[in-house]
């Protein structure tokens, strides 16, 4: 049973204390793109992802983690994205995912 991956999980089971996370960057990202709060975590973005098809990259996991203030490895990971834009087309909440990717990159590393 343990080996079956249904694809619903965002992260391995572990204890996170959100109170200990530094939410400054996360808040800045949400302030600039409030529509991210409309995400229902459906995972369509991950399911359609070109980069996710070729690697372990998981966009839903990434933006959810970043929103929670878990930035470790996020910048390296998001650089796997090819900005192809499929995720924007499939997102049922109409989130401007490409702008979100660029924003996360900007806040976590670039510039």
């Amino acid at each position: 049973m343990r080996n079956i991956n249904f694809g619903y999980g965002i992260s391995r089971p572990r204890a996170i204390d959100i109170d200990n996370n530094d939410l400054r960057k996360s808040n800045a990202i949400i302030a600039e793109m409030p529509e991210l709060q409309a995400c229902i975590g459906c995972g369509s973005c991950t399911a359609s992802c070109t980069a996710g098809n070729l690697t372990e990259f998981n966009f839903r996991r990434l933006h959810t983690a970043v929103r929670r203030g878990e930035y470790k490895g996020a910048y390296e990971d998001i650089n796997k994205c090819m900005l192809c834009g499929k995720c924007r087309l499939v997102c049922p909440r109409g989130i401007n995912t490409r702008a979100l990717i660029m924003l996360i990159k900007r806040k976590l590393g670039d510039f």
Binding site: T50, N53, L54, L83, C84, R98, M102
Partner: peptide, 22 residues
């Protein structure tokens, strides 16, 4: 069965060096 993007989306957003890899 899954390919690599042509690189134009990266160019359009200004990431010309990254696009060159595609």
């Amino acid at each position: 069965d899954g390919g690599v993007c042509c690189g134009r989306p990266l160019m359009l957003t200004g990431e010309t060096d990254a696009a060159r890899k595609m």
